[in-house]
Amino acid sequence: MGCPKMTETNLYLTMKGTNEGIIVYLDDQCSFITLLNELGSQVKSDTIENTTEVIINCQNRYLQDWQREEIRQVVEEQSSLKVKSIESNVLSHEEALTWFDQSTIKPFVKTVRSGQVLHVEGDALILGDINPGATVNATGNIFVLGQLKGIAHAGYAEGTEHVVVASYMNPNQIRIANKISRAPDYEMQGSSREFAYINQETGQIELEQIHNLQKIRPNLTDIVERGL
């Protein structure tokens, strides 16, 4: 957050100019209708230059999607301001759970066996082997502290940034987001301590030694950012 440069206050709205742009703080105690009316009249009378982007911060008020949309409409119809984002201090219980799910590492102490399919929200930590014919799907990364001989699918939703890390890598297939790579047709020995990722230049899944992980995915553990 940059330091405040200009502050304008009335009963329901507080505007602050910061380095990030203009932030409009909305009162979180009044009714939503009052707020909309106030916002409408305020932005209309405002003399701010055209096509400036604003960030709306509704503080401790929980806004449903249609309410967010309405606020956006009021601001953009009444003035030529652009709403860059709508922020809030509160999350619904459901959103919080989803976020928690997406951002935690889920450990499993078991051998995943042929025919079994493990579906994990967030990162999966497998303390055991993934046997041939077994599948592990995770919306986040997959870490295997054992032998990966089956199928691992990281970034199950569409996370092209996610990786599959295994202490012994000899998989049937590795899938990341919508990319698939399979083992060659000839017999091969697996390799130790490797990880698979999508190389953005080639667009293909590639394998690397684990010590290169910090170079290739330095933000791997910034899980707090994920899911929001």
Binding site: R113, S114, G115, Q116, N131, P132
Partner: peptide
């Protein structure tokens, strides 16, 4: 061995 693995998974 693949089928044995499957059966062990079911037995578990």
């Amino acid at each position: 061995v693949r089928d044995a693995d499957r059966i062990i998974g079911l037995l578990e």
